[in-house]
Simulated scan of single mutants.
Amino acid sequence: MKNARLKAIYNETFSGLRLYYRDTNLSKNLILNYKVGQIIQEKGFTDMTSMGGGLSGNLRYLIASAHPKDLSKFNPDSAKTGHFLLDTIAYFKVLDIQKIGGKTQVFLLNIPDNSISLFKNSSSNLEEEIIEKARKKFSDKINSSLIPELQTEGWKERTKSPIGMNENGEMYFDDAKIKTETPKRIEINAARKTIEVDKKPWWKIWQILFF
Rank of each mutant, 00 (worst) to 15 (best):
L62Q: 11
K35A: 10
A190K: 00
S139M: 10
Y34A: 01
G16I: 00
D87G: 10
G82T: 00
K184G: 03
K160G: 01
D140V: 12
T182D: 13
S78M: 10
S56W: 03
T46W: 04
T104A: 03
N110G: 04
L55K: 06
P183M: 11
A191Y: 06
N110R: 12
K80D: 09
I142T: 08
N110D: 08
K177C: 06
I186M: 09
F210P: 13
S145N: 12
K73Y: 11
D198E: 14
D77H: 11
E128P: 05
S72F: 05
W206E: 14
R185V: 11
R5I: 13
S115A: 15
P76W: 03
L85A: 04
K80C: 08
T46L: 15
T159E: 08
F74V: 08
G44P: 10
I142E: 08
S115R: 00
I186E: 02
G53A: 04
E170I: 14
L71K: 14
L118G: 03
N25R: 10
Y10H: 05
R18Q: 09
L85G: 06
T88P: 06
K93A: 00
S72A: 10
A64N: 09
L86S: 02
I178F: 12
K99S: 15
K93Q: 05
T180A: 13
I208V: 13
F84H: 04
Q98R: 12
K35P: 07
G82S: 01
D96S: 15
L30W: 05
E129T: 08
N143G: 05
L17C: 03
E149P: 03
F119N: 02
N29Q: 15
K200T: 11
A79D: 10
I63Q: 08
I39D: 01
I178N: 07
E196L: 14
R185E: 13
I131Q: 06
F14P: 00
V36A: 11
M171T: 07
T81C: 07
I147D: 00
L108E: 01
V94C: 02
K133C: 04
M48V: 08
L6D: 04
A134S: 14
I131F: 04
N75G: 05
L71V: 12
K141T: 13
M51W: 07
E153I: 11
S78P: 05
A4I: 12
T81R: 06
L109G: 00
I131C: 08
